[in-house]
Design a protein around this nucleic acid. Structure first.
Lengths: 320, 320
DNA sequence: CTGTTAGCGCTTTCAG
DNA sequence: CTGAAAGCGCTAACAG
């Protein structure tokens, strides 16, 4: 492996000069520049990136924590972040946690170990203060509403959004509204639950636990929701579904179970994934590309902590 | 930032000894071990991973090249690889190419620069010899049948599989069979096309270009296929679809266009993603977890080049 | 069982 | 415009 020293010798200059031309620093004479470049070409030189990392104390690697990578929601988010990273010549270290706390901590430790320059956590499992305690080691960015001093975030105001959606359904005449969600305990889920309860209170509607379906992530989970629904005597007339995948499953199964949508059951979902268009789902579009880009920008920004809210957009199709 | 030297001083030992306890080397006395550990704890020591990388010439990072991350096929593959990586305490550097050759070359250069220890290319765009030329820098693993000396691979024999699927359809009485595919030019696609043409020849069936649909990746592409089909006079009676997503789109749209499946159109797809179960798709299951695991193992194996074939499994449901 | 020491390859003052 | 030299933090012979 030829190194900077070899090049210096070959070009008849000092290592400093070589370093200068590698990094496009000014104030190097034309001749030396070309001498160095020739030497580099001749010996097929490639700088050792690890040495650069050590010397600079940076890696140009951004960690991205996701529970799973095969779920469209996270896939889309990763895609958004990856595109932003691509543009700025940063690399992504993908850390899949399967919602195991230890794995998330490992990611945090990568930050501490300077193995990554920053960490984007798309969905966290660790307690807030644990994450906060690592923020001294580098930028941490979260995907949840966390107007906090130490940790940047790009988020959707789920309280607001859920409230808006519920009102929309209410105005369409629905009084018995349920919802499906993934994890029950995530920060975003909690926000939505609060919105839901506040909505009920405001319109003096009864709280019906059986209208809430937790741990719903994909199409198959949706099918189960619909099957359950078809056997309920007093079923909800509308459902807020926090993922197009789940909604697609529900819709499919409704057809098989002779539940007419939206007549027997209105469905309003989230994401605006391709499948929602195909199935004519009324959905709330999440601007994944924008979110990914913002998350990435925040990850790069070492100094300032910021909080970016992104807006969801209602796409009215045929399921409400 | 406290370093190994500080710890050595604090514990009253040499840096070597500290290094030894960090790396769990034997032959260090109990007392020194605990002294060092105490010192580390006290000063909240964390080793600088970049220094380790430089010193060892390794990064414990494996590059994974995918065209997109939001597509279920690649998502599943990433998931499989990520799980294997997790177990062995390796990290993944995700490189999304959007099928841009320059991006793939950048990934290759990361290998050359020793920024990653190995590279897994889930779908390539670069010419074969370009990739091959980088194999001197470290293990490169491909997801296509490449019984080659320098580059390992885990693959599905798409010729065999496609042939098998076509015969299956033929035996069910289909003579006019079409297929959908993603990129037309990928190595796997070419294999399938050859299988398709050989099949036609063998049964002296006519080659009908309009039965082949290229650039089909997701549900929406599937919808377009079905719409097109519904307007054809002499349409195929069966379709081999290389992705459950596309198949799902076709199926959805067939319903809307009054094409009965399998009566008017039989559909056989690939992957066995959750949606295929929900939609009762007959499909060829790809064992993603196994593929991911094998790819990862091969990436770790610097010495030997190997070629692992994985088998597809037919899941008979209701669309054929 | 322990310590000395020479790197790993590059960046960055600092002095010219 | 150029170069010497001092690190960056850790590993691994090698000598004891």
């Amino acid at each position: 492996m030829t190194n900077i020293k070899d090049i210096a010798k070959l070009a008849g200059v000092s290592v400093t000069t070589v370093s200068r031309v590698i990094n496009n620093h000014p104030y190097v004479s034309e001749e030396k520049v070309s001498a160095v470049k020739a030497a580099m070409k001749k010996s097929n030189y490639h700088r050792n990136i690890n040495a650069v990392h050590l010397s600079k104390g940076k890696t140009h690697l951004i960690g991205v924590v996701v529970p799973f990578s095969n779920h469209p929601y996270f896939g889309l988010l990763i895609e958004g972040i990856a595109n932003a990273a691509l543009e700025q010549n940063y690399k992504l270290a993908l850390i899949q946690t399967n919602y195991k706390e230890t794995k998330e901590i490992e990611a945090l430790k990568m930050l501490e170990d300077k193995q990554i320059d920053a960490l984007i956590i798309c969905s966290r499992i660790c307690a807030w203060d644990v994450i906060e305690s690592y923020s001294v080691y580098g930028p941490i960015v979260l995907c949840e509403d966390s107007r906090n001093d130490k940790i940047s975030s790009t988020f959707i105001d789920h309280y607001k959004t859920f409230t808006m959606a519920l009102h929309y359904l209410y105005e369409k005449g629905h009084q018995r509204i349920g919802y499906t969600i993934g994890r029950q305990t995530g920060a975003n889920s909690i926000q939505r639950d609060v919105a839901y309860k506040d909505f009920l209170t405001r319109f003096t509607l009864p709280y019906e636990p059986s209208y809430i379906f937790t741990d719903r992530y994909d199409v198959e989970d949706g099918v189960r929701v619909a099957e359950h629904l078809s056997n309920m005597k007093n079923r909800p007339t509308a459902l807020l579904v926090t993922s197009d995948q789940v909604a697609a499953g529900i819709l499919m199964s409704c057809r098989e179970n002779r539940l007419a949508v939206p007549h027997d059951l209105a469905i309003m979902s989230f994401d605006n994934q391709p499948i929602s268009k195909v199935m004519h789902l009324t959905t709330l579009e999440i601007p994944f590309v924008e979110v990914g880009k913002k998350l990435f920008q925040q990850a790069l920004n070492v100094q300032d902590v910021s909080h970016e809210e992104v807006q969801v957009r209602l796409i009215e199709r045929e399921t409400v």
